[in-house]
Amino acid sequence: MTPMLIGMSLLLAVTMVVAGVLATRPSQALSISILAAGLVSLLASVQFLLLAAPDVAMTEAAIGSGLTTFLFFFVLGRIRGGDRD
């Protein structure tokens, strides 16, 4: 079922680029930027699975997207003023 996998890979690639642009755009609220960066990581984890790397996929889901996002929100919760530029 290679065509299906290639189609998925393309869709994920486009979505990741869109989410990456959303994450770095300065006009976005900071919490949504962080959420978009988390989305990039989560989708990258599916992309890793497509590249036959389940170990890396699990690491990215648990550490790269999970813990990083949580740490960001904990710091952001303390620095409420930082949400404004």
């Binding site: 990456g20 994450a23 770095t24 300065p26 900071l30 930027s33 962080i34 960066a37 990039v40 990581s41 990258a44 990215e60 790269g64 990083t68 960001f72 710091v75 952001l76 620095i79 930082g82 530029d85």
Partner: peptide, 16 residues
């Protein structure tokens, strides 16, 4: 970006 937290977010995107 001039905001430090935004720079860190961009860094994680590049890391991925």
């Amino acid at each position: 970006n001039r905001n430090i937290l935004r720079m860190i977010v961009a860094f994680t995107v590049a890391n991925t």
